[in-house]
Design a protein around this nucleic acid. Structure first.
Lengths: 109, 109
DNA sequence: CTGATTGTTCACCTAGAGGTGAACAATAAC
DNA sequence: GTTATTGTTCACCTCTAGGTGAACAATCAG
């Protein structure tokens, strides 16, 4: 399985406010589709599509329980995305602080 | 300024392998467009577009120097994206470890 | 059985992402 | 001045993201 493509999907999944809201709600515990999408400014078919993006990215898992579908977060995809950022942050935080400060001073002048 | 929209763009910027490669290379120091995109499997116009996405997201800054354009990372956008992930990771890591283990056992059974 | 509820699927639309080759602009080198 | 280099802009293409209303499937409640 291609790890790059998996990262693509994870970051893409987080790049839409509706999907980030759903993820935020699921951090408070599993929820049905209706609960997780309540009040969001989109139609039901749109929610279905956003959930497909989240599931394809491995960010969310679904358990069908009767007529309701219970959603919960999966840790791996989100952990991988976090690790990519932290890995590279360590480098740029150390390296470019001085450079940026230098440029900020130039901009002010 | 809308912080949500800014997060949208940052995560979107990271959702493409060509753009992530450019970011990775810039963690090793500023580079020209040619250096940062060397060997990538896309044409020059495509690189120009990817750079626009990175700049719009605030991930990359550009300094025109003669006929070459020097690119460097900006910390803020990447830091904000990292913080969003870490903020929510703290919650889901704590809350769902037990649940996922439980489900894993069910799947095995 | 009937009706309400939950969520998906279907058919459709529009805007934008991502790609290209060709032409151009600006600078650097000779 | 002429040529090479760096990168963008232009015109174009295709595919997908994101949205909708209407219809459907499945389950639950009466």
């Amino acid at each position: 399985m291609n790890n790059q493509a998996q990262l693509d999907r994870s970051f893409l999944a987080l790049s839409h406010p509706v999907r980030r809201t759903i993820v935020e709600r699921l951090t408070r515990g599993p929820a049905t589709v209706g609960e997780a999408s309540q009040g969001l400014p989109v139609s039901k078919p749109a929610v279905t599509k956003h959930l497909k993006v989240l599931e394809d990215a491995g960010v969310v898992a679904r358990t069908v329980s009767g007529r309701t579908h219970v959603l919960r977060l999966r840790r791996r995809a989100l952990r991988d995305a976090t690790q990519w950022l932290e890995l590279h942050r360590a480098l740029w935080e150390a390296k470019f602080e001085a450079i940026e400060e230098h440029i900020a001073k130039e901009d002010t002048a």
